[in-house]
Every structure is written in structure tokens, then in C-alpha cells.
């Protein structure tokens, strides 16, 4: 009994102390991790504020220079590339077309397919399911060559649809929506049927509004995915007026290694423009994005 009280009295002080040390340690690790993630962008952003000669001489910098505005301006509005026909704004526009077009197309097509699979009595439902879900097995990277060949034969090279549509040919979206629809209470469709709603009305009046957060989450994920596509745009767009920012990175890298005094500042500015929209979307719609990412993968 005496022992017991002693330990009870003796315990609190060291444990509280230890707790504090633990917390500080936790924060130190997290701060180190955050810096690891953040520093490259900080470096890039600050260095983008110098003229090319300085960068070529000094490398990455950590204090601001005075060329930031002009570098961004040149990156966005000065015609560059081999043919001097394309500026940053065109690539920005193309990136948005790819990101939004891909996300919207994917959501519409996969919602329709998931709706058909989940809510209809269909004799070949299982067959359709397997046809669609086998595509989950093979990422585009594995079948680039034949896909490229297919696009060539269809005459879709150097078109927006050739850029976007083949990327939609995987079932991720359909899979997400199928999971979500299956979790919607059964009674809702029954109540709607008794209320006189047919399949189209049920879809538009009830299922789509119910899926709003899911749609938003998937939109974010798909937009980022589409915006960041690299390999496919590299293959399918040879016409510079169709280049996206991420596709343009390759050109940047090539100039970087070739030129005597490469336009580092501009290149960095363009890289920042290339990452800013998806990064901002992910940061501002964080909770939707995280929810969509973690819940849809179950």
C-alpha cells in the first residue's frame, strides 16, 4: 500500500516533463518535414526574381532580387519555343482545357456508367462491370505505344479530344461513383419511385444533388491529375499551340541545358505558373480533396 502511494505521488512530475519534451520533439520533426516540403518552392520562387546572368553565376538564391515581375511577365507573354508562336498564356489556357476537360468529361461519363451499373437490373451488368474495371489494371503508361498508334489512325493527334479522351479510358471515376452510389440508402430510390420519379428524374433530382461533395472531391483529384499529365501530352501534341505547361517543362529543360546563358528566371517563373493552380486548389479545398482521396479508395 505504501509503495503504491509513493509511486503515485512520484509519477506526475517526470511524466509531465517527459510529455512536454515529447511535444517539442514532435513539433521539431514536423517543422523539419514541412521545411523539406516547402524549401524547394521557396528557393524557386525567390530565384525567379533574378536576371539570367546572375542566376547563371550564383545559382539558387534565398534573398529576393528585382526581376520577379519581369520574369513572370516574360514567361507568360513572350513568345518562345522553336517556332516562337506560343507564350505562357497559351500553355496556361491549354493546361486549363486539359485539366477541366478531363475532370468534367470523366465525371459525366463515369457517373452515367456507375448509375447504370448500380441502379438498373441489367442482364449483362456483371459483364459490363468487368469490361470497365479491367481498365483499372493497366495504367496508360503501360500501353502508351498502342494508344498512340490508335490516336494516329483515328487522326486525333494534335487535337484537344485526342489529348483528353484516351485519358478518360480508365475506370477510376466509375469505381469511385459506384462505391458512393452503393452506400446511398436503398430506401431513397424506393421512396423516389413511389413519389413518381423515373430513372432520369431520380438521377437529376436526387442522386446528383446527393453526390455534390463527392463530385467536388473527384473534380479536384481529376483536375490535378489531368493538369499534371506529362507523358501522353508529350506524345500526342507536337503542335506547340497545343502545349500544356507541364508538357512545356520539357522544352524548358532542353533550353536550360542547351543555351549558353539559359533563361533560368523565366523557366522558374513558368514552372511556378505550372504548379500554382493545382496547388492552390488542393490547399483551398483540402477537406474535400482528402475526403475524396481516402474514401473513394476503399
Amino acid at each position: 500500500m505504501a509503495d503504491l502511494t509513493q509511486t503515485q505521488i512520484a509519477q506526475p512530475t517526470p511524466s509531465r516533463l517527459r510529455f512536454k519534451w515529447n511535444t517539442i520533439f514532435d513539433h521539431l520533426i514536423l517543422i523539419a518535414g514541412s521545411l523539406l516540403m516547402l524549401m524547394p518552392l521557396v528557393y524557386a520562387f525567390i530565384t525567379a526574381s533574378y536576371d539570367p546572368v546572375t542566376i547563371h553565376r550564383e545559382g539558387l538564391a534565398l534573398t529576393f532580387g528585382d526581376e520577379l515581375g519581369s520574369n513572370f511577365e516574360k514567361a507568360l507573354f513572350e513568345k518562345g519555343g522553336f517556332t516562337k508562336t506560343v507564350d505562357g498564356m497559351v500553355m496556361l489556357k491549354n493546361s486549363f482545357i486539359l485539366g477541366i476537360g478531363f475532370a468534367v468529361g470523366k465525371i459525366i461519363i463515369s457517373m452515367m456508367a456507375a448509375y447504370a451499373i448500380v441502379y438498373f437490373r441489367l442482364r449483362f451488368a456483371t459483364f459490363a462491370f468487368w469490361i470497365i474495371f479491367t481498365t483499372l489494371l493497366l495504367p496508360l503508361e503501360v500501353r502508351i505505344l498502342p494508344s498512340y498508334e490508335a490516336i494516329q489512325r483515328l487522326g486525333m493527334a494534335n487535337t484537344y479530344s485526342g489529348l483528353i479522351v484516351p485519358l478518360i479510358a480508365s475506370a477510376t471515376g466509375t469505381f469511385f461513383f459506384r462505391q458512393f452510389f452503393r452506400a446511398v440508402p436503398e430506401e431513397l430510390v424506393e421512396a423516389a419511385r413511389i413519389d413518381g420519379a423515373g430513372p432520369v428524374k431520380f438521377f437529376i433530382d436526387i442522386l446528383v444533388p446527393l453526390s455534390r461533395t463527392m463530385i467536388a472531391a473527384i473534380f479536384i483529384i481529376m483536375f490535378v491529375f489531368g493538369w499534371n499529365q506529362y507523358l501522353w501530352p508529350t506524345l500526342i501534341t507536337t503542335d506547340e499551340s497545343l502545349f500544356t505547361l507541364v508538357r512545356g517543362i520539357k522544352q524548358i529543360v532542353l533550353t536550360y541545358s542547351d543555351a549558353a546563358i539559359p533563361e533560368h528566371g523565366q523557366a522558374l517563373a513558368l514552372a511556378i505558373v505550372a504548379m500554382l493552380p493545382p496547388v492552390l486548389i488542393v490547399i483551398f479545398f483540402q477537406s474535400w480533396f482528402v475526403k475524396g482521396l481516402t474514401e473513394s479508395d476503399k
Binding site: P185, E187, L188, E190, A191, A192, R193, I194, D195, G196, A197, G198, D205, I206, P209, L210, R212
Partner: peptide
């Protein structure tokens, strides 16, 4: 079901979560 002129009350109520009470009743 819609043409049988029946109404049904479900165990979990099956209310449309995105509609107001009035809209639910009037749908």
C-alpha cells in the same frame, strides 16, 4: 409503384437529405 396511388413510410424515413421539409413532402 408511382401509379398505384400508395404512400409508404420507411424505417429509416428515406427523406431526401438535400431537400427542405416542404420540398420533401411536395416532391
Amino acid at each position: 409503384p408511382a401509379d398505384r396511388n400508395i404512400a409508404m413510410v420507411f424505417q429509416n424515413y428515406a427523406l431526401y437529405p438535400h431537400m427542405t421539409v416542404a420540398k420533401n413532402m411536395g416532391y
